[in-house]
């Protein structure tokens, strides 16, 4: 989940105004967001067919490639840890004292029944690295003026061929994101809301992630704590740390 947040943050944060074109917007977002490390606490609400579950986790990350997530609740998930190094993923479960590597095809499976796959969580490339951007218009969204940016993949190995972003024109926080298939079919939509100012940055505290082809209410993230520039020991990003 954390990676998703990183993705959005690293992409969309922007200080300044009157952006001349989309590439510049994205670039500025990344420049402004490059924080060496982050610690988040979040709640993920998964709307199942008969009930909803809330999963609380704390994530630490350094740069784009390393992240460590610990689940705090519910009791059943508490203590489960997930380590991502580059494109490898391990999950540790305290009840079995086992570290299981999630590899290859398993990465495309859904995480905890959410609308996200492990792979979605693993994406760590900058949007500007994989997409070329184009400003296609301006729209008002929830009484906020937004720039509408269209992203088209410029590398081959991306999950979504095109994306569309609605970026708040004052705060430069994305308020909506849509992912499209090569054919143009809308696949997923993320809505970002509850934008708050944290350590001088505007930050969307709530994200709703929705698979548009499926029925259901999607998966909801709520940030409960966001901290930048913390002291994260390097030791955390090793397999040995999973067992602790």
């Amino acid at each position: 989940m954390k990676s998703i947040i990183i993705l959005f943050l690293s992409t969309f944060f922007l200080l300044g105004s009157n952006p001349p074109n989309a590439d510049e917007i994205l670039k500025k977002v990344e420049q402004n967001l490059s924080s060496d490390n982050r610690v988040f606490e979040s709640e993920m609400v998964i709307h199942g067919k008969r009930s909803s579950r809330t999963i609380v986790s704390r994530s630490y990350s350094v740069g784009d490639k390393e992240s460590f997530t610990e689940y705090l609740s519910p009791a059943r998930e508490a203590g489960t840890k997930m380590l991502k190094l580059e494109n490898q993923l391990w999950i540790y479960s305290p009840s079995t004292d086992r570290t299981i590597q999630i590899s290859g095809h398993m990465l495309r499976q859904s995480v905890m029944g959410s609308d996200l796959s492990y792979e979605d969580m693993m994406e760590d490339r900058k949007l500007t690295d994989i997409y070329s951007a184009k400003l296609v218009g301006e729209e008002t969204l929830d009484e906020r003026k937004t720039y509408v940016i269209e992203l088209t993949a410029k590398v081959e190995d991306v999950a979504y061929h095109t994306q569309k972003l609605w970026v708040d024109s004052e705060r430069f926080v994305p308020l909506k994101e849509e992912m499209y298939a090569k054919s143009g079919q809308l696949l997923k939509r993320t809505t970002l809301s509850n934008v708050q100012k944290i350590e001088g940055r505007w930050f969307p505290m709530t994200l709703v992630y929705k698979d548009m082809l499926k029925q259901g209410d999607g998966t909801e993230f709520r940030m409960t704590s966001v901290k930048f520039n913390q002291n994260i020991p390097e030791y955390l990003f090793t397999k040995a740390a999973l067992k602790q």
Binding site: V158, A181, K182, L187
Partner: peptide
């Protein structure tokens, strides 16, 4: 019927 698949690069497509 709507179907969704991923090409050899993992890019989603649907039609």
């Amino acid at each position: 019927i709507l179907i969704r698949w991923r090409d050899k690069n993992g890019t989603f497509d649907a039609t």
